[in-house]
Structure formats: C-alpha cells, structure tokens
Simulated assay, not measured.
Amino acid sequence: MTTKTSEATDRHGRYTLGIVDNDPLVAEAPRSSFERFHAPLEVIWALTDPEDALVHCLHAKGRPDVLLTDIDMPRLSGLGLFHELQTRKLPITVIGISAFPNIAEEPGLVILPKESAVEEIVQLAGMLRRDDDLTRWFPTPTKPNPLSPSELHALTHYSEGLTTTAIAHTMHVSESSMKTFAKRAYEKLDAHSRTEAIAICVRNGWI
C-alpha cells in the first residue's frame, strides 16, 4: 500500500510506526530493536488487539505513518485490517508479517517473515513510500563493547533474573569473583547500579 507522506512525519524525516500482533511478546519485541538501532521509524504503539489498532489508525493523533501487522489474528485478521484501512483511504503504509509469509497474496500488501531484521522493514517501508532515505538506511554500528566475556556473561545472567549464587554456580566461579566481575562492569560502563548497567548493554545490543 503506497501512500504519500502523512502529517505524522516530522521535519527530521522520521516516520511513526504502529505494531499489532495478538502475541504480546511479538508485539513488543520490535520496539526495543527499533529504539536500539535508532531506526527512522518511531514506534508510537504496540498493540495485541487489531480492532484497537484500527481505532488508533482512525484517529489522526494516534495514526502511524507505517503499520506493521501480523496477518493471522483472531476476530480481525491482518488482511482484514489492511482492507479496512484501504476502504477508508487512510494515509498509512501497511506491511504484513507472518510466520508463513506466503500465506496470502494480496495486491498492494507485502508480507515479510516475522524474523525479518529492522533494516528489512525500514527499507521496505522506504520502497513503498518512495523515500530513498529509508530505502538506503542501515543500522548505525553500536559502540564497542568494553566488557570482558566474564563481565558480560555476569550481566547477561543478571538480566535473566538469576541470583549471584546461581550465576556463580553457572559460571563455575566463586561468589566473590562474581561480585568482582559486576563491579568492574559498572566501572567500565560508568553505571551506578546493576539495572543501569543492564540497560546500557541492552541499548547497545550487547545482550
């Protein structure tokens, strides 16, 4: 579905993105990826109810420039949502995602695999919107990781909710060594807490 740039696009060339998938984990997963890579598609909402997504699309304040929608959903499928938006001639570029991308052939709708990378989605949006900046976009390389493997493994396990004792057992080291790994990691990241250190690692794509 090719449209002209909508009013939701800001003066810096960024576009707004809405995501809808009846699986809450799948609906939220792309948000962190788009934010981590500073993609030119800004996620303004990620919803699990396609009918709720339609309501957002109908109102100018919540209307995204690009909609990433799961195809196979109960009550209102991604195809049904696409048809509703087409009927109303809303200025939204719709991209479908599915575990089975060949599930349907619909004129004006491209369906990508659910595991598609951020740049594939952004570049497809660029082609559909005829925006060369989007079409040529690639993620900005992340900052070099200053942590040693042991320090990174420690923070990764902490991010999974494991205790210091459990992590020490998993890594076959003493608890005092674990605390040393964590302390060194905080110092290298200039973090003041475990939560802050983990957030820095996630933001930079290290864990």
Rank of each mutant, 00 (worst) to 15 (best):
S174I: 13
F82T: 01
Q86T: 10
I207E: 11
E105W: 11
H153F: 06
H153Y: 10
V26H: 01
T87E: 14
G96D: 03
P50L: 10
E84D: 12
E196F: 02
D70N: 00
S174T: 15
S77C: 13
E187P: 11
Y158W: 14
P30R: 04
S150K: 10
L189C: 04
S6F: 00
S150M: 08
A8G: 07
L109M: 00
T69A: 06
T135P: 00
T2N: 04
K114N: 01
R203K: 15
L112F: 00
D133H: 11
L128H: 04
A117G: 09
R194E: 14
E105R: 09
A168W: 01
L155K: 08
E84L: 06
M1C: 09
H153M: 10
V55Y: 13
E84I: 04
E120L: 04
G205C: 01
L54F: 11
L134A: 02
R31G: 08
K89G: 03
E175T: 15
N102Q: 10
T9F: 07
T142S: 14
E160L: 15
H169S: 14
E51I: 02
I71L: 01
C57H: 00
F138G: 02
L90G: 04
S193F: 05
K143E: 12
T2D: 10
G96S: 05
T87I: 12
K61M: 13
E42T: 15
C57L: 00
R63K: 00
I44S: 02
A191K: 02
G205T: 03
L162I: 14
E160N: 15
K89S: 11
T142R: 12
S32V: 12
V118M: 03
P146T: 05
P139M: 01
A8K: 07
L162T: 14
Y158D: 12
D72G: 05
Y158F: 15
I198Y: 00
G205Y: 00
